[in-house]
């Protein structure tokens, strides 16, 4: 009897203890400001947000976690949206920004109104905001490093870039080109913009391919590997090693080739679930925890031996993903 009461008391106080810890954010409202939803990566990002924040709201960790997406990928539209969010009284705004600097004015307004702003993926440079960034340069470099290990003899590379004018494209490309310059056995003989879309990449690669010598490998930015593979097949050229970008169609194609002829490559991209990391970071800041302004998330890499496991958990038409828990976020904040 006594034992039971004791156990109950301990359990109850434990519950109370956590209750107290959570109490600080239970009436806080968090908003997601998203600038674009028109591709599979963004769809997965929004889905992850829902999947993680809904239970968090039900459990009373925060009062609300509402996602808002602008229809056109426009700075002015997102600025107006954030202004509305300020007026609606959100305590924190998690933002995937259309531009790293053009939103700084409205971000500053939000900060001045006492709102916590956490940017991720498309980060903002305004000093008052937090940034959860991916080391895109390192991501680009990792592609060439992988190739250097896989084919020490080197050869010609074709580079598929992303959307011109977006800093992510510049950063990944910089990483690729700098590392390729260090590995003299590789030569980038062509570079096209695939806009992170299979159709655009297919079109651009099909156009430049006839004028190129033999290509040993294709370095990409994600969302373009499957289109590149189609273009090589249509031109009747041998399939090079195409670095993939974690999209389900890319992984599926890789798996088919692997089963057929032991095709080897790797796949790397930023997991759309990084939105959930941003959510937990915002919650931690609201909770009064000390969080450094600049955080780095690891990118999600898939290799020959982890392909099947990742393909199995990636839904048709989606992107390989990881969602973050509060504990994961605490680890990232602690720099582990």
């Amino acid at each position: 009897m006594l034992k039971k009461t004791l156990a109950c008391t301990i359990a109850l106080s434990a519950l109370l203890a956590t209750g107290v810890a959570m109490a600080d954010t239970k009436d806080k409202k968090i908003a997601l400001s998203n600038n674009y939803a028109g591709n599979s990566w963004r769809q997965a990002m929004l889905k992850s947000w829902d999947k993680v924040t809904k239970p968090a709201v039900e459990a009373g960790i925060v009062a609300a976690a509402d996602p808002f997406t602008t229809s056109e990928n426009q700075v002015t539209e997102q600025a107006a949206q954030i202004q509305n969010l300020i007026l609606q009284g959100y305590n924190a705004i998690v933002v995937n920004a259309a531009s790293p600097d053009a939103l700084n004015g409205v971000i500053k307004q939000a900060c001045d109104a006492g709102i916590i702003v956490v940017s991720f993926d498309g980060i903002v440079t305004e000093p008052c905001a937090w940034r959860i960034a991916v080391d895109f340069e390192k991501m680009g470099a990792s592609e060439v490093e992988y190739l250097a290990k896989k084919m020490p003899e080197g050869g010609n590379l074709l580079e598929i870039r992303g959307l011109a004018g977006v800093f992510v494209d510049d950063a990944i490309s910089k990483g690729i080109n700098e590392t390729a310059a260090k590995n003299a056995q590789f030569k980038i003989v062509g570079s096209v913009h695939g806009d992170w879309a299979q159709e655009v990449a297919q079109k651009a690669v099909a156009g430049i391919l006839p004028s190129l010598p033999e290509i040993k490998a294709v370095v990409t930015q994600g969302g373009d590997g499957y289109g590149a593979a189609q273009a090589f097949a249509a031109a009747g050229r041998p399939t090079p090693t195409i670095i993939m970008g974690n999209r389900q169609d890319e992984l599926q194609w890789w798996k088919e080739q692997k089963d057929k002829n032991g095709y080897e490559t790797m796949s790397v991209s930023i997991a759309p679930g990084v939105s959930t990391l941003a959510f937990w970071v915002a919650q931690m800041i609201l909770d009064g925890k000390e969080v450094p302004k600049d955080l780095t998330v690891p990118f999600l890499r898939i290799d020959q031996d982890t392909l099947e496991a990742n393909l199995a958990t990636t839904e048709k038409g989606g992107v390989a993903n990881v969602e973050y828990t509060a504990d994961d976020a605490a680890k990232v904040v602690a720099g582990k």
Partner: peptide, 16 residues
């Protein structure tokens, strides 16, 4: 035709 040609429909296929 485009989804036949590029082997699949995608949300951003019409953009350009």
């Amino acid at each position: 035709l485009l989804s036949g040609f590029s082997r699949g429909a995608a949300l951003n296929m019409g953009e350009e």
